[in-house]
Amino acid sequence: MPMRKILSFSRLLITFLVLWLSASWFTPRIFAHTEALQTEPAAGAVLWLAPREVSVTFDQPILAGSNLRLFGEGFKEIWLAPYIDEQDPRRLHSILYPRITPGKYTLQWIIIAEDGHVLTGFTTFHVRLDDDWLIALAFCGLVALLLPAKQLWKKRTPWNQSPAEPTQS
């Protein structure tokens, strides 16, 4: 390929790249409505144990005054103290204390976006077991582990062994 052709091709490529980069730099990539990107627990999640925290991450930073509300069945509202993450101003979260009981929950967000728009949305999740179940499971597991150990202890310790039957001659 002649050198002149290669040079003109590279020039064309560079021009195209410069134009493309400047276009993508100057195009306004601003969204007038904020959308939820991720919720924790995830939408429709079925959790064995109650979560310690609920959170929603949006595609844009949100403003103070944004709120999270959590409802159990029959509109039983669970107390939340939502706050915007200092490290990530797109994330609104709250700890869950005390832990919630098994059942279906709706997590609702009412947020104020940077452009002042108010938007609400909700997601649902289920919790299967509560802390009492966790304790019961731990206890059962411990018993299951100790049972064979006890049998072993019975089998191996000489003072537990019954004396050998006297043989009749």
Binding site: G44, V46, L119, G121, T123, R128
Partner: peptide
């Protein structure tokens, strides 16, 4: 013992059909 534990756990849990991961947006203020 483990079989008994699993049976009792599954009896206490909801239906095995995957629940709908319902999420909604209500764009009114």
């Amino acid at each position: 013992f483990y079989v008994l534990l699993l049976v009792s756990l599954s009896a206490c849990t909801p239906s095995t059909q995957a629940p709908l991961a319902l999420q909604a947006v209500v764009p009114v203020s």
